[in-house]
Amino acid sequence: MNAAVAAPGQPRRWIPTPLIGGAAAVHAGALAALAVSPATWPWAAGGVIASHGALAWAGLWPRSALLGHNWTTLPESAGASIAITIDDGPDPDVTPRMLDLLDAHSARATFFCIGERAREHPRIVEAIVARGHAVENHSQRHRHHFSLTGPGAMRREIDAAQTTLREITGVRPLFFRAPAGLRNPFLEPVLCGLGLHLASWTRRGFDTCTSDAALVAQRLLNGFAARDILLVHDGHAARDANGAPVALAALDTVLREAAHRGLATVTLREAIVG
């Protein structure tokens, strides 16, 4: 879902999606039915359970826009460009090597950093920005139960990362990526209040669980085209038989193919905000 929306950076009004509005209507209808005829409770309960199942399924689909706006590709104005996004860092071993690789290709990338890791390695985060890349919000602690938290806890987690990354870089993140891409209906209202936009990806290489760099590159290049948003990792990186992070070799292959096709690399900020 990449329709025209307010630019990231400013708080905006939350507008429920049809799925969320429909689920609310089911709940209201169930309550009304029970008030009129308590004997309808099996049907009312079934409708509520089904609506919760639909919401849960939407939250388990990282590229879904059923719970709110989600950047899965760059806007048409990006033209012949792609976005490389790099998650779960900074990592003291992998991130500097990834920065060197990007420099070698004259490429720019968007790093979705974890706040706690940024606190541990602030010089690396500073280097990311100094070398022309963007730093965005990937939560403060990257907890695996993030998608199970309520709006208050979710806001505190995201806002803590906002503060951490802004203090280190001097720049306020404009985009958020949920840990593992998983979320719930509370996320979009929180992002609206913080002036953040959700960004997922067009495709990913599963480079945290695959030790074959060629296979990771193949996944990233399957259907490769202008306006793609690709996902690799500097944190939690899987390694090949020689101990090398597979993301490095895979990203090298992708960047060579991008150059061959005449595709430029841009940060999400450049492509979406301008």
Score class of each variant (00 low, 15 high):
N2Y: 10
N2A: 10
N2M: 13
A4P: 02
P8G: 10
Q10L: 11
R13I: 07
W14I: 00
T17P: 03
P18A: 12
G22V: 00
G22A: 03
V26I: 08
A28C: 02
L31Y: 05
L31T: 01
A35C: 15
P38R: 06
A45V: 12
V48K: 08
A56K: 15
A56F: 01
W57Q: 02
A58T: 06
L74A: 06
S77T: 14
A80Q: 12
A80I: 02
I82M: 10
A83V: 09
I84P: 04
I86N: 04
I86F: 03
D87L: 05
P92A: 09
L99D: 11
D100W: 13
S106D: 12
A107L: 12
T110Q: 06
F111D: 02
F112Y: 15
C113W: 05
A118C: 11
V129D: 12
H145I: 05
F146A: 02
M154R: 09
R156W: 12
E157Y: 12
I158R: 05
T164V: 05
L165W: 04
E167R: 09
L174K: 14
N184D: 03
V190L: 07
H197V: 15
A199Y: 04
T202E: 06
R203Y: 04
R203W: 04
A214F: 04
V216N: 14
L221I: 11
I229Q: 04
G235P: 11
A237K: 01
A244S: 03
L248N: 07
A249M: 01
A250I: 06
D252L: 00
A258S: 09
A259V: 10
H260T: 07
R261K: 14
L263P: 09
T265G: 00
R269V: 15
V273C: 12
